[in-house]
């Protein structure tokens, strides 16, 4: 089944690689992955949708939490959350079906972002399943080209970010460079 994971990770070189590497290393299939900075520019939020056996879901979260750059990993499949995706769709359509295409786009809450004699570019946001239907409907009217953003999700209840405190280093610094 599909598991929606929300991660907060340190914006450090290699952090993204650690997350994607972990997923492929443990055999979890990535359905989609989005990442961008948070309000704190040193942190990023990542939404990952993975296709994983339901028994493995807790394990995925635990493995994510073990990554040192990951500050928080939440399974949003288990808590109240909103999942949204953006699709950009370009359609070539005949003069006759232009009106119908616009009507259909309106039903899905779409917005025309470009219009030409050959067709439209339309943006729609919504639940990922809904966007699938939108693309299917549009395909009936002509040749389409589609880019999807991948799911973005946010939990409806806030979960406090629990950070580990600093620890002192061991050993005494040498007053003088140590030599034989």
């Amino acid at each position: 089944m599909q598991q929606v994971i929300s991660l907060i990770l340190e914006n450090k070189p290699g952090a993204l690689m650690r997350v994607t590497g972990l997923l492929s290393q443990r055999g979890y299939n990535i359905e989609s992955l989005t990442v961008a900075r948070t309000l704190d520019p040193e942190l990023s939020r990542m939404t990952i949708v993975v296709d994983v056996d339901s028994l493995q879901r807790a394990q995925v979260i635990k493995q994510m939490n073990k990554l040192i750059n990951v500050l928080q990993a939440n399974d949003l499949s288990e808590v109240p959350a909103v999942v949204r995706e953006l699709v950009l769709l370009r359609i070539r359509t005949t003069q006759e079906s232009r009106t119908a295409v616009l009507k259909e786009a309106e039903i899905f809450g779409g917005r025309v972002v470009d219009s030409s004699s050959e067709g439209f570019a339309i943006e729609v946001t919504g639940a990922p399943e809904k966007l699938g239907e939108f693309v299917d409907v549009m395909s009936a009217y002509g040749e389409v080209d589609v880019t999807r953003s991948g799911a973005l999700a946010i939990a409806l209840d806030s979960k406090k970010l629990r950070l580990q405190p600093p620890v002192p280093t061991v050993g005494q610094p040498h007053a003088q460079p140590a030599q034989k």
Partner: peptide, 13 residues
């Protein structure tokens, strides 16, 4: 400058 503390906010032991 010798390091006196380590801060790994996401490293949970």
């Amino acid at each position: 400058v010798p390091v006196t503390s380590i801060h790994l906010p996401g490293y949970k032991v």
